[in-house]
Design a protein around this nucleic acid. Structure first.
Lengths: 219, 219
DNA sequence: CAACATTTTGACCAATTGGTCTAACTCCTT
DNA sequence: AAGGAGTTAGACCAATTGGTCAAAATGTTG
């Protein structure tokens, strides 16, 4: 009955009635806290208490907004996935292949830098066998990959890219860009914290762009 | 007192007294089961009961061999890390850069294909911020990376590789090769299970080799 | 500011789970 | 084959934790 059960009184006029200011704020706080906790401790390691604490409320209060721990997990995972998809959507067959891919890779590197927790949470889910996302992966993501792979194939056929299975090109881009978020702890340790400094991500971006773009340019 | 407490009677003659056949077997079974459970469910999601079940013994029996859940985790992580290091060790400055790297990448791809669970467990630990491995990463791995990065730098200075920060070359190789193990669930879903078929890993290997080697060859 | 709806939380509960203890059982040695 | 060391597991325990409830506190609206 909370949150969801309302009867849009009258001319559904405008804003609220559905979601009050306080609801919007708290849901956002919970989602943010959940992403952090889940990414840091894994699904089972994260506790509702810890998420509630981080969101600045009591556990029963949190459970007033979400019916269960799993519901929170579902919710944040969905958010992440939605945003995760978007950069790939914009890959257009008309543009210059190298420039299109440069833009895509740059964007993904940016996302890794800006939202590492989200990336790590997604990674955790996949590593665990994608119990929740399996369906999404097999349907929406799969058809999106097929679609974009065919664009890459077109470019390959036009001699604008090296003849490499487009699916592996995509995987390689994902792997490389997300690595900087997912394995941040390793990168930080190995580089003695250099990765925390300003400019590191630009350097990384540059290096990745060089390797990948040269890697798929026709010889 | 078990396992560890023995007093090497007499001329420490030869084999056992320290570890009996049954101990070797059970420890191995536990380690295998633990790698699988930890990689699949994460540290907190894995239960001693499940590990014991998978190893074919009771929980108290398992705890006869390892003092605690954390000890099992430590142990398998150590094993994995040791093996994980080895391929990088062999990178020699004398060899042909491209051939040396081809060998290294091929080996890492092979490890991803052969032991995906180990890769995923390692990935989980890093994603969680490397609470256990932090020290290892900052010491042994870091100096190893520095050492090998300087080899790459030598090759770059000789004009045998493109001028790209060697550390990022290493990260990119790690990212790409491990992706095929860590994100296997995604890859499988997206490729409609093609990744399970024979030959897929050779294809992947080939694609990755092409992209990365071309990516770091001088232009 | 009264009356109603929404939000918040302390106190609880039940299930899970890491770990222990004791007693039985198996294996190896002599 | 006896005896002791080494191995195994059933029954338990205590702590953690997901989730509930009823009552208090706060917001909102006329």
């Amino acid at each position: 009955m909370p949150a969801r059960a309302n009867t849009q009184t009258k001319t559904d006029k405008a804003r609220s009635a559905k979601t009050s200011r306080i609801q919007v704020e708290n849901r956002a706080a919970i989602a943010g806290a959940a992403i952090r906790e889940f990414s840091l401790r894994g699904y089972h390691g994260a506790t509702i208490d810890a998420i509630a604490d981080r969101a600045g409320m009591s556990k029963p209060n949190l459970l007033y907004y979400f019916p269960s721990k799993e519901a929170i997990y579902h919710c944040v995972l969905e958010q992440i996935v939605e945003e995760w998809l978007s950069p790939l959507l914009t890959l257009q067959v008309n543009g210059d292949p190298i420039e299109e891919l440069r833009r895509y890779i740059t964007l993904k590197m940016q996302m890794s830098a800006d939202q590492p927790d989200a990336s790590r949470l997604f990674a955790s889910e996949i590593i665990a066998g994608a119990p929740i996302l399996k369906d999404f992966l097999q349907t929406r993501l799969r058809s999106l990959v097929e679609e974009k792979a065919s664009i890459l194939q077109t470019w390959i056929d036009q001699g604008k890219l090296a003849p490499i299975d487009p699916v592996h090109i995509i995987f390689t881009i994902w792997a490389t860009t997300q690595h900087y978020a997912d394995f941040a702890a390793q990168i930080e340790a190995v580089t003695d914290g250099q990765s925390e400094k300003a400019g590191f991500h630009e350097q990384a971006s540059q290096a990745v762009l060089t390797i990948l773009l040269n890697g798929i340019k026709p010889r």
